[in-house]
C-alpha cells in the first residue's frame, strides 16, 4: 500500500527546470533542490503505528502473593516501526541534472526526479538546441575570456560599427552551417539531405564540436553588446571564447560579461523556478505542468498528421469517382 509520501513522490517524478543564479555551482543547486524535496516528502503525515498483541507480565505488589504473576494480553504499538527509530521514509532521492552550467553562468537548468532521469538521457540524445544571451564588452582581453579573469590586453573599439559586427556574425554563422553539414554525415547531393535541410532536421551525428545554428546581435551600445546564440553541444567556456574571437575578428578585443541560458530544448525561461520557489509544492506543480505540456504536444502532433491523412483519403476518393465517371 502506498503511503502519502510515496504517492507524493510519484507525482514529483519527471522533468522540470530551475533558474541557476550566477556564482553558484550546479551541484549546490541540485543538492538544495534535493534537500528541499526530501523535506517536503518527509513532512507528509506518516502512517499510524501498527499494533501487535503482546503478553505483558504484571507482578502483583502484595507481599503474600508476590509470586503470583498474572499475564495479560495487551495491544501495544510496535515501536520498531516508529519514525524516530526507522528514520524518515525517504532518505535519498535521485535528482539528475541536464546540460550543465558552469559557476560563472546563469540560466535555465533542467533537473529530473526519480524515473525522470531516464528521460534526461533521451533529452540528451535528441540533439536539442539551446539558446544563450551573451553580454560582451569591447576593449579588453582576459586570460579566461570572462570579465573576472586577469587582463591580458587592452585595445580601442571606436572603429567598430554595428554593420561590421553583423558582417562578422554572418560569416561565423556560415562557417558553422558548413560544419553542420559535414558532421551530420549525410550525402550532400542526395534527396534525403535536401529534405532534411528543408525541414531543419539536420543535426550532427554522435559527438561533435560545438556548432552554432543561429547568431545575432540584439543590442549594440559600444563598448557593450548582447548576442543571442542558438547552439548544439556547447560549453559555456566555448561561448566566452566565441565573444573573444568576435573581438579579434573586428580588429579589437572583447570579454564576456555574462552567459545566460534562456532556453534548453523546450524548457524556457517562463517555466524556470527561481531560488525562492525550490520547494516541493512548487516543483510538483512544475512537473505536472511539464507532463500536461507533453500530452498536449503529442495531441497536437496527432492532430497535424490526422488532417493530412484525411485529405489524402479525400483525394483518393475523388480519383476513384473520376475513374468511375470515365
Amino acid at each position: 500500500m502506498a503511503t502519502p509520501a510515496i504517492r507524493m513522490f510519484r507525482r514529483l517524478e519527471g522533468l522540470f527546470c530551475v533558474y541557476k543564479p550566477p556564482g553558484v555551482h550546479w551541484k549546490l543547486v541540485r543538492d538544495t533542490v534535493q534537500t528541499n524535496l526530501l523535506k517536503g516528502l518527509n513532512d507528509t503525515p506518516s502512517q499510524p503505528l501498527p499494533h501487535e498483541v503482546r503478553f505483558l507480565v504484571q507482578s502483583s505488589s502484595d507481599g503474600e502473593a508476590a509470586k503470583a504473576v498474572t499475564v495479560s494480553a495487551a495491544s501495544v504499538p510496535v515501536l520498531s516501526k516508529h519514525p524516530l527509530v526507522t528514520g524518515p521514509e525517504f532518505q535519498d532521492i535521485r535528482v539528475g541534472v541536464g546540460h550543465r552550467l558552469d559557476v560563472f553562468s546563469s540560466g535555465v537548468l533542467v533537473l529530473a526526479v526519480g524515473n525522470g532521469n531516464k528521460k534526461l538521457n533521451d533529452l540528451h540524445s535528441t540533439q536539442v538546441t539551446r539558446e544563450y544571451m551573451l553580454e560582451g564588452e569591447f576593449g579588453t582581453a582576459t586570460r579566461d575570456f570572462s570579465h573576472t579573469g586577469p587582463v591580458v590586453e587592452r585595445s580601442t573599439y571606436d572603429h567598430i560599427t554595428q554593420d561590421k559586427l553583423e558582417r562578422v556574425l554572418a560569416m561565423l554563422e556560415g562557417v558553422n552551417q558548413k560544419a553542420m553539414l559535414t558532421y551530420s554525415k549525410v550525402d550532400l547531393r542526395s534527396q534525403e539531405a535536401y529534405e532534411m535541410a528543408v525541414h531543419g532536421l539536420l543535426a550532427p551525428e554522435g559527438k561533435s564540436p560545438p556548432i552554432i545554428t543561429g547568431l545575432r546581435c540584439i543590442r549594440f551600445q559600444p563598448p557593450n553588446f548582447t548576442l543571442e546564440v542558438q547552439c548544439l553541444n556547447e560549453t559555456q567556456k566555448y561561448l566566452c571564447k566565441l565573444v573573444h574571437e568576435i573581438g579579434l575578428e573586428l580588429r579589437s578585443t572583447a570579454v564576456c560579461n555574462a552567459v545566460r541560458r534562456t532556453r534548453d530544448g523546450f524548457f524556457t525561461l517562463q517555466d524556470a523556478l527561481t531560488r525562492h520557489h525550490w520547494t516541493a509544492a512548487d516543483i510538483m506543480q512544475a512537473v505536472q505542468q511539464y507532463h500536461s505540456a507533453k500530452r498536449e504536444r503529442k495531441h497536437s502532433q496527432s492532430l497535424i498528421s490526422a488532417p493530412l491523412q484525411t485529405s489524402e483519403g479525400n483525394m483518393a476518393a475523388a480519383q476513384e469517382k473520376e475513374r468511375s465517371k470515365k
Partner: peptide
Amino acid sequence: LSKLVQLGVSLW
C-alpha cells in the same frame, strides 16, 4: 530504548 523513543529521541 522504548522509553527514549517516547521521549522523542531520534534513534535513527
